[in-house]
């Protein structure tokens, strides 16, 4: 796996894949895609990076432990659900607002943040699993 071509190409591939994962996640509400798929794509990007450059490099690049990212995602999803309580709606009721930024209408909603939470949970967990298995004996 440590061929020179693989090592050279993989950073570019990883960057593109991550970008793609964000794209897939954000468009998920209207077109095929969403947090689960995006998360899996992002996780495969990190797994790829781990195969080409070794697990420690990925961990340094990530800064946070993958499970911390997953925890953040769960918090985000739960928080997006809790926000509706502030507006006296049941837990997880979708709230929408359409502010205009630079003349372009932007759809902001709690389901969006919920989906981002899903994205982070799946990314974090799957990356954690992949890295744990890629690492040699006992290293995490």
């Amino acid at each position: 796996m440590n061929t020179i071509i693989f090592r050279t190409v993989s950073p570019v591939l990883v960057a593109l894949t991550l970008l793609f994962s964000a794209f897939v996640t954000l468009r998920g509400h209207n077109e095929p895609g969403g947090g689960f798929i995006g998360g899996l794509i992002a996780a495969s990007a990190f797994a790829l990076y781990g195969l080409s450059h070794g697990v420690p490099t990925v961990r340094r690049a990530l800064r946070f432990h993958p499970m911390e990212i997953a925890g953040f995602g769960l918090l985000l999803a739960g928080g997006a659900g809790l926000l509706s309580i502030v507006f006296a709606r049941p837990f997880l009721t979708g709230l929408w607002t359409f502010p205009s930024v630079l003349g372009v209408e932007v759809a902001l909603s709690t389901p969006l943040f919920f989906d981002l939470g899903v994205y982070f949970v799946v990314t974090g967990t799957m990356t954690s699993i992949a890295l744990a298995l890629e690492a040699r004996e006992g290293g995490v």
Partner: peptide
């Protein structure tokens, strides 16, 4: 629900 992808 303002979404066009029903599954999502």
């Amino acid at each position: 629900a303002h979404g066009r992808n029903v599954v999502n």
